[in-house]
């Protein structure tokens, strides 16, 4: 497999994950509603996501993308480590952004976070003990609100979103380049769009635990 093809796999899976994040983020904005309304709405939304066969199919694509993205990242990094030179004194970093050079580290942070995230909510929803709301849907909302009353978890989530944000800023620009966008004007536009997209999505995600933590401070 050529180096370029491997990068295309990274770009394709990465861009799909970016798109997923948008949907995920938009869906989760229901958490910002009035608590009771949020509970019903959010739980109904969660229920919809688990029942629908199309959504199921997409979720398999999602899992494959995450695994594919991680596996190819490993393959690429392993090859790059042997191909690149090691210097006794290395000041090469002055010529590039730290997050561009450390996509693997940022990605690992995001991956570890993902495991935690799945364990926090996905696992509980699927296999854990969980209450039922007024509409008879599993009460994921309570699980979320309970979780985010723990300050340490909020900090982890916010930190992970910062890591994700930088990962996305480089990732979007890089993947579009891998796919071959070369016109300087459009490259500039896409780059600006990528930064805005990353900040908005990750900002939105980070705001959720913070919002829940603050609104529940007195209870």
């Amino acid at each position: 497999m050529s180096t370029l093809l491997r990068k295309i796999v990274m770009a394709a899976t990465g861009l799909f994950l970016c798109f997923f994040l948008l949907i995920h983020c938009l869906g989760n904005t229901q958490l910002f509603m009035e608590p009771e309304q949020a509970r019903l709405s959010f739980n109904a939304y969660s229920h919809f996501l688990t029942g629908n066969p199309l959504v199921k199919l997409i979720s398999y694509v999602l899992y494959t993308s995450i695994i594919g993205h991680a596996v190819y990242a490993l393959l690429i990094t392993a090859k790059n480590k042997t191909a690149g030179g090691i210097y006794k004194k290395d000041n090469r970093g002055r010529a590039s952004k730290w997050y561009s050079r450390n996509m693997g580290v940022l990605g690992t942070v995001v991956l570890i976070f993902l495991v935690l995230h799945f364990q926090n909510f996905w696992y509980v929803y699927k296999f854990g003990e969980i209450g039922i709301d007024a509409n008879g849907n599993k009460d994921l909302y309570t699980v979320v609100v309970t979780a985010f009353q723990q300050l340490w978890l909020v900090i982890i989530y916010v930190t992970a979103m910062i890591a994700l944000c930088y990962h996305l800023i480089h990732g979007i620009a890089s993947s579009v380049r891998t796919l071959g966008l070369f016109h300087p004007k459009f490259v500039r536009w896409v780059h600006a769009f990528g930064v805005a997209y990353s900040v908005l999505i990750c900002g939105g995600f980070a705001a959720m635990p913070v919002f829940i933590y603050i609104t529940n401070l007195n209870s």
Binding site: K7, T82, R92, R101
Partner: peptide, 15 residues
């Protein structure tokens, strides 16, 4: 030839 992947850090352009 054994060259690595381009990860678009853009350092090459600067040097």
């Amino acid at each position: 030839e054994g060259f690595g992947h381009c990860s678009n850090t853009e350092a090459c352009e600067v040097e």
